[in-house]
């Protein structure tokens, strides 16, 4: 379980990116974070991942205070960010240096199989399509068996077909081991399709504007009226954040 207490983040240049964010995410829950550009979504994920530090407040994962990158937290970035000098296998196994070679290979293979890329182990990242790269990035985040996986607009660079395919795929993976997912997205449909809760952030500085439950049974029918209703509810919440948005200090 992920517990975010009163965190604030002001960058050294004075930009107040986040203020007073408090959020609890239960084990196995999927939370989507939406909000306008600059509302601090990426900042929030960076803080949870331990890549950056909050200026105030605390973050705990399963009772462990996050002060640096932690194996319990995996992250998938918007761009795949695979290391181009490592093969697919090398990328997925990057964080498993502490394991024995056979164990590592086994885990890597399992993870690649899980994302449907078992035959791609020896490819270079530049030999992959965007969707394949993002699958590898997901495998890389999965392989350490983190209890929390952070995804920062993971599918936004993909075409609509691939995006829906990967969303469904992500749900299948989630159903296997039920990790906690925190998904930043600008795609309301994606939020409604995946999340059990949607957090709407409001910018300047980033604060929580609204948290709403998505009360749809899984599997969800993207074409149903109730799906549309959920989308509309989130859109209207977003609307209010945008209307009140103050221009950033120059």
């Amino acid at each position: 379980m992920l517990s975010i207490r009163n965190i604030g983040k002001t960058y050294p240049n004075g930009t107040a990116a986040l203020r007073e964010i408090t959020l609890d995410v239960g084990a196995g829950e999927i939370v989507a974070v939406v909000g306008g550009s600059g509302s601090g979504k990426s900042t929030l994920l960076r803080l949870i991942s331990g890549l950056d530090h909050p200026t105030s407040g605390t973050i705990d994962v399963d009772g462990t205070r996050i002060v640096a990158p932690h194996p319990a937290v995996g992250i998938v970035f918007q761009e795949p960010r695979l290391l181009p000098w490592l093969t697919v296998e090398g990328n997925v196994g990057f964080g498993l240096a502490h394991l024995s070679r056979p164990e590592r290979r086994h885990r890597v293979h399992q993870a690649l199989k899980r994302v449907g890329l078992a035959d791609y182990a020896l490819r270079w990242p530049r030999e992959l399509s965007g969707g394949q790269s993002q699958r590898v990035a997901i495998a890389r985040a999965l392989v350490a068996r983190p209890s929390v996986i952070l995804l920062d607009e993971p599918f936004s660079a993909l075409d609509a077909f691939t995006r829906v395919e990967l969303q469904d795929h992500l749900l299948e993976i989630w159903a296997d081991t039920r990790p906690t997912l925190v998904l930043v997205t600008h795609d309301i449909e994606e939020a409604v399709a995946l999340a059990s809760r949607v957090v709407v952030l409001r910018p300047f500085p980033g604060r929580v504007a609204q948290v709403s439950d998505v009360k749809l049974a899984r599997p969800r029918d993207r074409l149903s009226h109730s799906f549309d209703d959920e989308k509309r509810a989130i859109l209207s919440a977003l609307d209010t954040t945008l209307a009140r948005r103050a221009p950033p200090a120059a």
Binding site: G74, L82, A144
Partner: peptide, 10 residues
């Protein structure tokens, strides 16, 4: 980004 990816993997 590569540095961050590597750091996040420990």
């Amino acid at each position: 980004e590569h540095v961050n990816a590597a750091r996040s993997l420990g």
